[in-house]
Amino acid sequence: MTTRIAERFAALKAERRAGLVIFITAGDPDPKISLDILKGLPKAGADLIELGMPFTDPMADGPAIQAASQRALKAGMTLKKTLGLVRGFRETDKATPLVLMGYYNPIYIYGVDRFLDDALKAGVDGLIMVDMPPEEDAELCLPALRKGLAFIRLATPTTDDARLPRVLSNTSGFIYYVSITGITGTASADLKHIEQAVTRLKRVTPLPVAVGFGINTPDQAAAVARVADAAVVGTAVVKIIADHPKHPSETVAKTLAFIGDLAKGVRTARASA
């Protein structure tokens, strides 16, 4: 098992603060700018990175992340190049956990075993698979765990107490709580719901709980950081990339500046509570 995820959450705990998880789509808006953004994330304040694997048919994503996938694919992105991006990132960062997030088909076509080996070698720490519920664990989850990659499961408002143990089994790294019943970039959950959900999860798992979907501003990130182990921001970041297509250096600078604001929110959340 790679140790970066556990070490990062241990460090956050020691600092008595929550982590900031940043989602970007690999290769968005093109492979070069994407690598520049990726490399800048840790310094800007991202504690963990979720790197989206572009897919033509992202079933659980709203318009912003759909468009990010489209931009990346149009710029020639493939799963192989996504792993190349991770290798490039690891040239300058050995400590920040990086997990790949996406849909199964590109991995299936790449070949599960070969993909897991190549991902591990590239410096990937775990996988978040949108369309791989526990019912299909034999296919990717168990092989990933055997090779030493974390398999981070999504729990949702529809995951009731009866089903929760099933969702938690074979889960490692952390739990990703999807705070709304819906796709990315649509609604935001109220804080009370999030707090209750995190409490419910904490009762049954020792794993850190990250909360995502619908966190768009530094204030929202800070609020979530008060009750969860990490806050995940994706759509809002991807939108900044979309809004600054003209000058590569501006795209990178604006994106990282926004992440800086989010990080400030997350880092001061508990102190100011």
Binding site: M59, A60, D131, T158, T159, G182
Partner: peptide, 20 residues
């Protein structure tokens, strides 16, 4: 029982939909 016809079929959906 798991919804497969040989290797085909299955339930590759988001967790939100699984209970349903």
């Amino acid at each position: 029982e798991s919804g497969h016809f040989g290797i085909f079929g299955g339930r590759y959906v988001a967790e939100t939909l699984m209970p349903l």
